[in-house]
């Protein structure tokens, strides 16, 4: 069991964590590249830069959404995101691991705050999951992925809370720890290749949407091909 934990903590962690980092960089580069290419190929180069920028800011700091439509959902969602980002990065135990292995450390959350935030995140993710499952409209829009992700994100938080607070037998502790690490590693490895990649491409999405609403390059030929009227003048 200990060997298994060491493996998860060593090579497997390095692999999954780096897949996440490099994968996110890759998706960012690919998106920018694709957008720039599309912009270069577009005949009409007038874009609504300003409105796209404002929309991006509004999505990044969603104050307006809280006040306006669906306040409860928006609030839960924001809290969920805060917990998701803050707890893993600023938890003392995690920073300690970074310090011993790589030698860098940073500001950490106080112990109690971390506990409350963790519980809050767990509660929010359950609420979001229920909200999705109970509402008929969102049920029709949802894919399997959309149900799986909140559960997967919930796992390391729950196990992490147990490890930090509940006194269990050593063998149980090892088991919980293993689940904690394995679930986190599964998240790492799928993160850059699924919808969770929005954590880095989010600021771009509004520009990409604005671009995509313009007709893409050589679309005239594509329309002609689809209509089986190649070579004819439009």
């Amino acid at each position: 069991m200990q060997e298994f934990i060491d493996f998860c903590r060593g090579p497997l962690f390095r692999l999954t964590f780096l897949v996440m980092i490099f994968g996110l960089i890759r998706i960012l580069i690919l998106d920018i590249w694709g957008a720039v290419e599309a912009y270069r190929n577009a005949g009409d180069k007038n874009l609504a830069w300003k409105s796209a920028f404002i929309k991006t800011i509004q999505w990044l700091f969603p104050v307006k959404h809280v006040v306006a439509r669906r306040p409860v959902y928006s609030l839960i969602s924001i809290l969920f995101h805060i917990g998701l980002i803050v707890v893993p990065i600023f938890l003392l135990a995690h920073v300690q691991l970074w310090k011993t292995s790589v030698g860098i450390a940073w500001w950490t959350l106080p112990y109690d705050w971390a506990n409350y935030l963790t519980l809050l995140t767990i509660a929010c993710s359950v609420a979001l999951l229920l909200g999705r499952a109970l509402s008929k409209t969102s049920r029709t829009l949802s894919r399997k992925q959309d149900y799986l992700w909140p559960i997967l994100l919930l796992l390391p938080f729950a196990t992490g809370y147990i490890c930090a607070n509940v006194t269990v037998s050593p063998s149980m502790y090892q088991l919980v720890m293993l689940t904690h690490m394995l679930s986190a590693e599964v998240i790492f490895i799928f993160l850059p290749f699924t919808k969770i990649a929005h954590c880095v491409v989010m600021p771009l999405s509004q520009f990409v949407m604005t671009l995509a609403w313009k007709f893409p390059a050589r679309i005239d030929k594509k329309i002609a091909a689809t209509l089986k009227k190649e070579g004819q003048s439009v």
Partner: peptide, 15 residues
Amino acid sequence: PEFDRSSEVYLGAPR
């Protein structure tokens, strides 16, 4: 057409 994985928005064929 090749779709961009993350956003699934078609921006034209990549070069």
